[in-house]
């Protein structure tokens, strides 16, 4: 069974990609994800300078969701470039997530990683503070447009994906802004802002007090976002991301219009072995339903579009 797929000009051996934020900034962990069956990896978000992130507690998990506020720690772009080169040795796409606290930072980081061999750039558009605006960057279509334009012109022919936030009244507006500004594809979605307390200790469970919700609770929200984007943008490559634990979760995204999915939070429970399991279960599903390939399944006309 052929489960390869195309997301823009990226050719993937399966529609299961490692989501950003999981494998740190270290080539050996990116290689582990790829050797474990991920068809591509998205790195943790890279900024120009080193960032420490937040101190623990930075992560909390319940059966229904995870919430994190890790604070985007990283070694800074120049120390990361060597890791891109080393992660590429398996010949699978390495997509670098880029961040910035200014438009210039986004574009200079993107230019550097593209030059060092990144196969694509995913723009993390959920940074809380930028140029002193104090609002969430990625929920302003005008700022999204400006960042995507600058990044696209900085990376040449490398594909650019805009990773969108669900913390908005209209994700279509953000997606349209990104695509009009030159984004080659979209990643939907980043985490939902949330907050959790421990009632015995009477304390927030994150040192940052609030954070981003992922996992099962994010899943139906993310699936809807993909659907809304697909309706507005019938031909734009889209990665679905949010609460993929089982193949049925991935199928939700494909039925809603995603070309491939990214897997993150479920790794805490299922480890990197989740990729091989998802691939096997997808093949079983497609065979059982009589599809000739994954491509045939996703290209089928759906009445909800």
């Amino acid at each position: 069974m052929n489960i390869s797929c195309r997301v823009g000009n990226l050719i993937l051996q399966s529609p299961f990609v490692l989501a950003s934020g999981i494998a740190g900034n270290e080539y050996s962990l990116l290689l582990r994800a790829l050797r474990s069956g991920a068809s591509a990896v998205v790195t943790k978000t890279i900024f120009k300078d080193e960032r420490n992130g937040y101190l623990p507690p930075i992560y909390y998990e319940s059966p229904n969701y995870s919430i994190n506020a890790v604070g985007l720690p990283g070694k800074g772009v120049y120390r990361f470039l060597e890791h891109i080169r080393r992660a590429k040795t398996l010949g699978k796409p390495v997509i670098v997530s880029v961040g910035g606290t200014s438009i210039e930072e986004y574009s200079s980081v993107a230019a550097a990683v593209a030059k060092s061999g990144a196969d694509g750039v995913e723009i993390n558009l959920s940074c809380p503070h930028v140029e002193g605006t104090g609002t969430e960057f990625g929920s302003d279509p005008e700022l999204v447009r400006r960042v995507v334009e600058e990044v696209k012109s900085a990376v040449g022919d490398k594909p650019v994906f805009a990773k969108l936030t669900p913390n908005t009244h209209s994700i279509e507006e953000l997606g349209l802004a990104a695509v009009e500004a030159g984004a080659d594809g979209l990643t939907a979605v980043n985490t939902l802002r949330g907050m959790v307390f421990d009632p015995v200790l009477e304390e927030p469970v994150l040192s940052n007090v609030y954070g981003g919700v992922s996992g099962r609770a994010l899943h139906p929200v993310a699936v809807y976002c993909v659907y809304a984007l697909r309706k507005a943008l019938p031909h734009t490559p889209i990665f679905g991301v949010g609460g993929v634990y089982e193949v049925s979760d991935a199928l939700d995204f494909f039925l809603a219009g995603a070309d491939a999915v990214q897997v993150g939070t479920s790794i805490s429970q299922r480890g990197y072995g989740v990729f091989e399991e998802l691939k096997k279960d997808l093949v079983d599903y497609l065979e059982r339903k009589g599809y000739a390939s994954f491509e045939e399944f996703v290209r089928k006309k759906r009445r909800w579009f």
């Binding site: 934020g21 962990l29 101190l55 930075i58 992560y59 890790v70």
Partner: peptide, 12 residues
């Protein structure tokens, strides 16, 4: 060690 469950990748 920050998340302790293998998702933040910082203790590689």
């Amino acid at each position: 060690v920050r998340c302790a469950v293998g998702v933040c990748g910082l203790c590689v």
